[in-house]
Amino acid sequence: MNENSQNKNTNRVQLELKLGEQLNVIISASHALNVRTAASFDSTLQPAAFLIVRWLFSFGPANATVLSESTAMDRSSVSRLLNQLKNLGYVKSEQSPSDRRGVLLSLTELGRQRTIEALKEKETAFYERIANWNDSKLENFIELLKDFNSNSN
């Protein structure tokens, strides 16, 4: 391997390390923001409960199995969190119209309102980070993220 190839490989490794550092910053900040958003929804609940709330808000009524699979939580944890959410009036159970034995879970009006309020706070924190960017910089960032995300599994 010649010196020019070694320099290119070294530079590439350094760039990949810097990318990893920045991705770690995004992941850590995102996690912290999710925890704060969950606390603003209801500080008495674990952040995992807000994952269920957000899923129901985004996708609508579902059974506990779907929620468990979609949030990558075990069935017993989902069941425990759903009971807490129901006791606090954020989630309700209804008989499934397609299968009378099945139960569908959905947000109550209180649950929807609290979710909207919590997500507004989260959006504000996100938009503060890009508030001073010009449109060109924002468009470039969006395109780079699209390209990065299109290669995810």
Rank of each mutant, 00 (worst) to 15 (best):
L138D: 10
Q84F: 06
S76R: 15
Q22G: 01
T108P: 02
F41S: 07
N4E: 15
F126Y: 14
K92M: 10
L17Y: 13
E109I: 00
S40F: 01
G60V: 01
V103N: 12
R100K: 11
N83L: 06
R129E: 15
V53P: 05
E94W: 01
N4L: 14
V91M: 07
T65F: 11
Q22C: 02
D42W: 10
R112F: 00
A39F: 00
P61C: 01
I130L: 08
S152C: 05
L85Y: 12
A62K: 03
I52Y: 03
T44P: 00
K18N: 13
E143I: 01
L144D: 14
R54P: 01
E69N: 15
Q113D: 06
A38R: 02
S96W: 07
G102S: 14
V35E: 09
A32G: 04
L17G: 05
A125C: 09
L88G: 06
E128F: 09
R75P: 03
R114V: 00
M1Q: 08
S77K: 04
R12C: 05
T108H: 02
F148K: 06
S28T: 11
T124P: 01
T71K: 06
W55M: 01
Q113A: 09
T71Q: 11
V103T: 15
R100Q: 06
L107Y: 06
L85M: 12
T115Q: 06
I130R: 09
Q6S: 06
N140G: 09
A72Y: 05
K86R: 15
A62Y: 00
A118P: 07
A118Y: 04
Q14Y: 11
K86W: 03
E139N: 12
E121V: 04
G89R: 03
A48F: 00
S106N: 13
E139R: 09
T115C: 14
L145F: 09
E109K: 07
L33M: 09
F126G: 02
F141G: 01
S106R: 01
Q22A: 08
E123C: 07
S58N: 15
K120P: 00
H31Y: 10
F41Y: 14
A29M: 11
P97S: 05
E94H: 03
S76F: 10
S106Y: 02
E143K: 08
D74E: 15
D135V: 01
Q6W: 08
A39S: 13
N151L: 12
L119T: 04
L85S: 08
S136P: 03
V35F: 00
V35L: 03
A39K: 05
G60L: 11
K8Y: 12
A131D: 13
E117Q: 12
N4D: 14
W55N: 03
S30Q: 14
K18R: 07
E16H: 03
V78H: 04
L107G: 02
D74L: 06
P61H: 07
K120L: 14
I26D: 11
G60P: 10
N134V: 04
L88Y: 15
